[in-house]
Amino acid sequence: MINRVVKNAEEAIRDIQDNMTLMVGGFGLCGIPENCINALVKKGVKGLTCISNNAGVDDFGLGLLLQTKQIRKMISSYVGENAEFERQMLSGELEVELIPQGTLATRCLAAGYGMPVIYTPAGVGTEVAIGKEVRRFKYNGEEKDYLMEHAFEADFAIVKAWKGDTAGNLIYRSTARNFNPMMAMAGKVTIAEVEELVEVGELDPDQIHTPGIYVHRVFQGEKYEKRIEQRTVRKKA
C-alpha cells in the first residue's frame, strides 16, 4: 500500500511558498487544521490566498494568520466573528471575496470531481452575479436563471479529519466534517492532519469518507484545542 505519512505539520507544509492559494477546511472553529495553521504562522509565508468558509476568530484559527498579516486575500462566505478581519478589510489591507456558502462548497466539489464549472441559482440578481455568465435552465419543473461558477484551483488543500490511515484514507467526526471532504478532493496537493493515525487495515473501507487517492500527506496532529465559538447549554431539570 502507498504510504502517505509525514512526520508532522512542519514537514507537511514544507513547500508552501509565498503567494500560494490554500484551501483550509473547517466551519467556524469546528474541524479546522490547527496544527498546520500554527506551522504556517511559524514558517511565516506571506501573500497567501485562503479559501475557507470563515476566517477564524481574532486569536484562533485563520485569525492567527491574519494577525501576522500573512493572508493577502480571503475567499469566504461568512467572516462575522473576527474584528481584526473587519479592520483589515475596511482599510483595504486585505482583499476579500465573499461568496455564497453552497457555491464555495460546490466549487471545491467540482474541482475534485473533474468538472470545470457548475451552474447555481445562488446569487442571481445580486452583486455576486456581476460579470458572470447567466443561463436559463429548466429544473424540477421550474425555469430559472443560473450563474456559471468555476471550480477552484488551489496549490494546497489543508484538512482536518478524526481518523486516518497511513494510506491517507480519512474519516471525519460529526459536524467537524463540513468542508473538509470536498476540499481534500480539490487540492493539487492535499495535506490531512488527523487526531488518530492508524495502520492500513484498521479502518473499515465502508466507513471511509475521503479515499486516500486524494490525500498526499497525512500526519497525526497534537494538542488539539478544539475551541468552542458559541457554548450554548441547557440546565439539567
Binding site: L29, A105, R173, T175, H209, Q230, T232, K236
Partner: peptide, 28 residues
C-alpha cells in the same frame, strides 16, 4: 451543561445535540 461537544455545532456555531434518526453530511 458539561455535555458540549466541540465537533457538534449548528450553522450559528452553537453547540447542539442530535436527535434519534439524525444524520451528518458534508457541506456540498
Amino acid at each position: 451543561e458539561g455535555e458540549e461537544d466541540a465537533d457538534l455545532i449548528n450553522a450559528g456555531k452553537q453547540t447542539v445535540t442530535l436527535l434519534k434518526g439524525s444524520s451528518i453530511f458534508d457541506s456540498a
